[in-house]
């Protein structure tokens, strides 16, 4: 067996036909084809799943407008949400979602940036040993736990301090603040650590103080990364359903203030999805909410890309 194999090889290598010799497939080229084939297959499957999901949500989401003939403006700007009676004004949920998202991001960002500066510039050792594990732990806690703590602690606290039922935007903001804080912090830490060391040295060598160096050089050059971190945090807040649902009160009405029960796109989806029948207006209306969520997450993604590009340009130019 071996003998023949050997002879075969010998014969081949002795061939004077260079074209044949250089074109014939060997194990290496076959492995190449195989690797390529497998990875294309995987990519194909993923693309198929994503595309069908997009198509599914989109087609269901637009049914409200194409089949039930609800006008888009009514949907986006109407304030009356009673799908059973044919009213589907989604503005209260849209407002609710944006309100809790922005409020949580605005509150969380200063804390996150402060913590990140502490961890990278002020006390890198303690940062790495103490805070890093804490933050990683916080990222991993499931959202239902956050919601439960919100329900057991934050809602009664708000009820006690500001009155009302305690359910509402402010409680949701607080819970989301705690949830997005570790996300924003850890990404900000990464972007601060990525600032080239020589920027810091250059600044210090010019006689700038540590604070000036951090605020005018390090934060400045980490800005695209920090913005990205904030957007990721916002995307998480915008898409969070369970924890929000547990503390916001779930009333599909325009929020009058921060302490009255309200609802978000996600909380309305999770509360409503079990009670509707496929193909009816109430069900289609929920799909339309889902479509808004999808579009928003695409928007967040696009934003991150734009910022990354800008940041790169700034460094290359």
């Amino acid at each position: 067996m071996e003998q023949t194999n050997f002879q075969l090889k010998k014969q081949k290598s002795q061939s004077n036909d260079w074209s044949a010799r250089l074109h014939h497939a060997t194990r290496a080229t076959r492995e190449d084809w195989m690797g390529k084939g497998i990875s294309y297959l995987c990519i194909g499957v993923i693309i198929l799943v994503v595309a069908s999901m997009l198509w599914f949500i989109t087609s269901k989401g637009v049914a409200t407008f194409t089949q039930n003939h609800v006008s888009l403006t009514k949907f986006l700007f109407g304030t009356n949400w009673a799908p059973d009676q044919g009213h589907i004004g989604a503005l209260p949920m849209i407002v609710g979602s944006f309100a809790v998202t922005f409020a949580a991001a605005i509150v969380a960002t200063p804390f996150a940036v402060g913590t990140a500066i502490f961890m990278t510039e002020i006390s890198p050792n303690k940062g790495r040993k103490l805070l890093q594990p804490v933050i990683e732990l916080l990222v991993g806690i499931p959202s239902v736990v956050y919601g439960f703590i919100g329900l057991a602690v934050v809602v009664p606290f708000m009820r006690h301090v500001v009155g009302g039922s305690g359910f509402g935007i402010i409680s949701a903001t607080f819970v989301l603040f705690v949830m997005v804080l570790p996300t924003i912090t850890s990404m900000t830490v990464d972007s601060l650590r990525a600032v080239p060391r020589h920027f810091k040295e250059a600044s210090l060598a010019l006689g700038a103080t540590r604070w000036q160096t951090v605020s005018r050089v390090i934060l400045r050059s980490a800005t695209p990364g920090i913005l990205t971190a904030v957007i990721f945090g916002m995307a998480r807040a915008f898409g969070e359903a369970l924890a929000v649902q547990m503390v916001i009160g779930n009333a599909a009405i325009m929020p009058k203030n921060l302490i009255s029960p309200a609802s978000t796109l996600t909380s309305q989806l999770t509360t409503g999805i079990g009670d509707t029948i496929d193909g009816t207006l109430p069900n289609n209306a929920l799909w339309s909410l889902a479509l808004i969520l999808l579009l928003m997450s695409l928007f967040f993604n696009a934003l991150v890309r734009v910022i990354a590009k800008r940041g790169q340009l700034k460094h290359e130019r």
């Binding site: 250059a202 060598a205 010019l206």
Partner: peptide, 24 residues
């Protein structure tokens, strides 16, 4: 003052690079 081995201007404009420390 100190100048380093690797040129290390800040990712700012030429003017800002010089004005930075003066402002600080």
């Amino acid at each position: 003052g100190m100048v380093f081995q690797r040129p290390n201007p800040f990712a700012k404009s030429i003017r800002e690079n010089i004005v930075y420390a003066l402002r600080a």
